[in-house]
Amino acid sequence: MTRKKKEALWFYLLVLPWLFGFVTLTLGAMIYSFALSLTNWDLFTTPGFVGFDNYVRLFTKDKIFWKAVYNTLFYASISVVAGMLFSLCIGYFLNRPVRGSSLYRTLYYIPATVPAVASALLFKWLLAPDVGLINRFLALFGIDGPAWLLDPAWVKPALILMSLWTVGASITLLMAGMKSIPTEFYEAAELDGASPPAQYYRITLPLLTPVIFFNLIIGMIGALQIFTQIYIMTGNGGASSMGGPNNASMMIVPYLFNNGFRFYKMGYASAIAWILFY
C-alpha cells in the first residue's frame, strides 16, 4: 500500500465516528424530518401523506407559532444585545487599574455557573408579585413592581432581566480578550492625551470586535433555544400549559415541544423545525 493511500485510510478511520454521527444524526435526521413534515404522523398510527398542509397551516392559520417566533426573536435579540452592552460597560470598569479585579470577576461569574434549572426555580421566586425579592427591593424605592411572570407585558422583560444575571460569562471572555491587547497601544494613546473612556472606545473596543462578534453569535444561538426557563417558570400547573400568560412567553422550542411531545404531532412539529431552518 502506498504511503498516500495509507494516510487517506487513516484519515477516514479517524474521522469515521464523526462521519457516522453526521450521516445518521444530522443528515439522515434532516431528510427524515423533511419527510415527516409532509405527514400527519402522531408517532403511533400509520403516517398519512398530507403534502404541504402542515406548512400551509403554519403560515396561514397558526397564530401561536408566529407569536412564538416573534417572542423568541424579541427575547434573543434584546437579551443578547443588552447583555453585551452591559458587559462592555462592566468591562470598562474592570479594566481600570482597580485592586481586587479578579475578585470582582469571580463574583460576577458565579451566577453564570448556576445551571438553568436552578436559576429558573430561583427566579420563579424572585419574580413573585409581592413576596418576590425583586419587587420587595423595588418597593424600597417606592416602586410598585409589576407581576412579572403573570403579566403578558412583563414576562419577556422578566426573562431578559434573568438573562442579565448571567452576564459574567461574557465578561470573562471580554476580559481574556482585553488582556491580550499589548499595553503599548494604551501608552501611545496616553501620550496623545486620550482619557480612559476614550481609550476604551478607540482602542479596546475595535480590537475586541472579533470577540464581541463571536459572543453575540454564540449568545444568539443559545438564546434562540430557550426552553428550560419557559418550562419551569411560565407554566401555571396545568398539564399542557407553558409559555403563558396568553402565550406571551411562548418560544420556539417550547412550542415545538408542545406539538411534538405533548400533542404528538410529529409531522407538524417537523414542519415547524424546517421553517425555522430557512
Partner: peptide, 20 residues
Amino acid sequence: WNEMMSIFDTELGEVFANRA
C-alpha cells in the same frame, strides 16, 4: 383532550387574570 385543555388554559388564563 390535551390540545383542548391547552386552548382553555391560554384563553381562560387571560380571563382569570382579569385581562380579558
